[in-house]
């Protein structure tokens, strides 16, 4: 006798789960697309709340500088530490400046800063909008005849996108400082050699590839964090779920955007 046949319920469970997942995915993609359309409508003609924009530029950008600086400095250093054995083995000290700069500008800078930005700013944004949603503050804005997209979402999205780019430039510079210092201390590479190597081999486009990526990551994090915040339901536990979903979806979106943009921009 063979193994007993699986009950019909078990056989149906997998397609049901796949179907539910695809439906949820379609709902989220549709929701984010509708939100993007609503934002673009408010930008033509531009109706931007300047007070909210500057408030968000400050708390999302300026207040992120310490954590971005620390992360970037150590990342630059770690990059050189990891490369050190090979640099010594192949006597490639003349390439370390170029390698660090190329990697930072094209990949590590925007990606790591994007992930830190997602954890700090994106998560906070979802939590704040989610709390406003479940405590009726978003409905209160509408009841006061104030458009929540124009007042809450547009300034946050603009602030997140612009600050992601600015923080990437800052982070790139600090990461290279960390790399240069570590190369000097660990490999005895003179800073002049480090920079000469970078300037000699680096192309301007390498820098702009990173900036374009950071712009894409900023759009991704801004849209996801606002969408999940405004879609929050179910009180305080719902806010927790929304933050979790937002951070995971944004991080996944950042990696997917990175993968495809690397192909396109190369």
């Amino acid at each position: 006798m063979g193994a007993p046949a699986a009950p019909v319920g078990v056989l149906l469970a997998l397609p049901q789960r796949v179907g539910a997942f695809l439906l949820a995915l379609a709902t989220q993609i549709g929701g984010v697309t509708i939100l993007l359309g609503q934002i673009l409508r408010r930008l033509n003609p531009a109706r931007i709340d300047r007070h909210e924009l500057f408030r968000n530029l400050n708390r999302m950008g300026v207040r992120s500088v310490p954590i971005i600086s620390a992360t970037a400095a150590f990342t630059g250093g770690i990059m050189v530490v990891q490369a050190a054995p090979f640099v010594e083995q192949f006597n490639a000290k003349g390439f370390i400046g170029w390698a660090a700069t190329f990697t930072t500008f094209r990949e590590l800078g925007p990606l790591l800063i994007g992930l830190i930005f997602n954890g700090r700013v994106g998560a906070n944004n979802t939590a704040e909008l989610g709390t406003m949603q479940v405590t009726d503050q978003v409905d209160a804005l509408r009841a006061l005849a104030i458009d929540p997209i124009a007042y809450l979402v547009v300034p946050r999205v603009l602030a997140m996108i612009s600050m992601m780019v600015v923080l990437t430039i800052l982070g790139d510079a600090i990461a290279l400082g960390g790399a240069m210092l570590t190369a000097d201390l660990l490999l005895d590479v003179d800073p002049r050699i480090f920079w000469a190597s970078a300037i000699e081999r680096l192309e301007t486009w390498d820098f702009f590839v990173g900036l374009i990526k950071s712009l894409l990551f900023g759009v991704m994090i801004a849209l996801m964090s606002c969408y999940y915040g405004l879609a929050t339901r179910g009180g305080a536990p719902g806010v927790g779920r929304a933050v979790n979903a937002s951070v995971v979806a944004s991080a996944a979106g950042v990696f997917i955007a990175d993968y495809f943009s690397t192909f396109v921009l190369d």
Binding site: T135, D136, R142, A143, A145, D147
Partner: peptide, 22 residues
């Protein structure tokens, strides 16, 4: 639509059950 509704909402003041204070 939402913009026209905003004009009507200017005629309405609303106190929410859980305050909804900013």
């Amino acid at each position: 639509n939402e913009i026209e509704l905003a004009r009507v909402r200017k005629k309405i003041g609303m106190l929410f059950q859980n305050y909804a204070l900013f």
